[in-house]
Design a protein around this nucleic acid. Structure first.
Lengths: 289, 289
DNA sequence: GCTCGTTACGAGCTGCGTAAGAATT
DNA sequence: AATTCTTACGCAGCTCGTAACGAGC
């Protein structure tokens, strides 16, 4: 059985190209690396290096071994973190999402639940959701699509519905709902991290300008002292950073189909029983408007 | 970084259930395993075991860790063998197949080639072909189907064509070719290891009996001293074990479409240049009949 | 009384750093 | 002269086995 430290040295060498730099990178001395690579060749019974008095390079086999070792070391590292993640998941149920809105609702219900619930501070791309669950980094992922694999399942929770907050004197405010088309050409204040909603508004509203704000505090400041319209959803009300106490705007739901996003809860089938009460709570507190 | 010997102990324990049996299986003493599992828990910073004075069992985390460790150790082991296989493949070009016929032809051309060619003695199931190539256990796999992946490609070589060898006085022998339907209800001597041909004849010939022979010597003996029909192909002529010097049977090709099998050579795209002359030789020596 | 798990102690292995040397640029 | 790789030597750390002990069936 090959010792991991030898594989690490091989991987490091394949990147640095010399034993000296490898040693430096691994915080050991050159003789250590020399002996290590000799031992690795000996253990494998294979020539990995071409040696000249002053220069050492990988053979084709050596390059291949380094490639395999890189992957193996990554998995080796993943072992520890996954075990720790699993252990942690035994005690606290971690919720994350691929959109910020559902995360806010989750944070809300976490406060009213006695169970050990943890809600992540940020959301992840949808294509990482499966990985988050299988590696036990999250027990519950709130997604805009169903995830179906042999070990995963998804349940529908509700819809996140987009609305726009318009100055009350704008003519578009003279109706109970608006359409994307009616917002054409306007300038909006938008928070940077709104997930898929960003693609939606950019795609659906023609010739609009979006004034993206990285800091929630800046967003709140500018909304308060300007008349720019901004977006909100039935879930964003739970955001403590964006709540604007004195707002002389009116909230107008957008009635396009693209302004509604179904939200699913995805989890490991093995965790079905554990997440059940959480799903019930999420559905119970889902705002209807 | 977790030491492999600790993971091995964990894997062994998950199978045996006690430290004593684990120690016995690994040829070490009980205290070694005790300390090992303590160190593993310490290194991971996670409780893997429930301990009672006289009994130790895995926690849920422990079971999960053992599961992950099992997979990791398998990959760890695969590392050495794959590096050695790659190194070996640098020097000798190994040919294998998913059918015995092409293997015989390959063995034939290997004798007439100066290059370092090795031909395996047995063939493998088609679903292992991709694995054999990517792990460098074989450089060339002769298959009855094309294999298409980002790293693999296949080239058509020729057809293996089934024929039946009938006693010259049988009425079916009074024609240049026969059909599967005409062989209905007969009894055939068949070698055990004929790959996919077995499914073909069982499916295509109604109510036939197949007298499967494990030993080629028995097959030869019985064919010589009996009148049972047996099968051959345009490639099986290269089989030294089956050649029957005094055969009072006549060879009749089967003209059904199912009696012809296209044969492809599959290999890593990276090996394209290396296999090129071998493919040329295989096509050049492919028998036409 | 037998089996199982844990702890203590000493021995042996092995991987490391230091030091020195040889070859190349 | 500076850099790179290799070899030799002694030490430190770690894993192992032996021995002894405690707890349960």
């Amino acid at each position: 059985m090959i010792e991991p430290y030898l594989l690490e040295e091989l991987v490091a060498f394949s990147r640095t190209g010399t034993l000296a730099k490898t040693a430096q990178q691994l915080h050991v001395t050159q003789p250590t690396v020399t002996r290590g690579m000799q031992k690795l060749e000996d253990d494998l019974g294979v020539q990995l290096f071409d040696r000249q008095p002053n220069r050492i390079t990988l053979t084709a086999t050596g390059r291949h071994a380094a490639e395999l070792a890189t992957r193996l070391m990554a998995q080796h590292q993943a072992f520890s973190t996954q075990v720790q993640a699993f252990d942690h998941a035994q005690r606290v149920l971690t919720i994350t999402a691929t959109l910020p809105g559902p995360l806010l609702l989750a944070r809300q219900i976490a406060q009213h639940t006695d169970q050990a619930l943890s809600v992540t501070t940020t959301f992840s791309p949808i294509d990482q959701a499966t990985d988050l669950l299988t590696t036990h980094q999250a027990t519950l992922v709130l997604t805009q699509r169903e995830l179906q694999t042999p070990t995963l399942e998804s349940r529908y929770l509700g819809r996140e519905k987009l609305a726009v907050n318009l100055d009350q004197f704008m003519y578009q405010a003279n109706q109970t709902t608006v359409t994307f088309a009616e917002l054409r050409g306007m300038s909006f204040l938008v928070l940077q991290d709104i997930g898929s909603w960003r693609e939606v508004i950019q795609r659906e509203i023609p010739q609009a300008k979006f004034l993206y704000q990285t800091q929630p505090s800046a967003f709140r400041e500018i909304t308060t002292y300007s008349d720019f319209p901004y977006f909100s959803t039935n879930l964003s009300r739970f955001d403590p950073h964006v709540a604007t106490p004195t707002d002389h705007r009116v909230r107008r739901p957008i009635r396009d189909a693209a302004a509604q996003m179904p939200i699913y809860a995805s989890y490991l089938k093995a965790d079905r029983q554990r997440v059940k009460p959480v799903l019930a709570a999420l559905r119970a507190h889902w705002p209807d408007d």
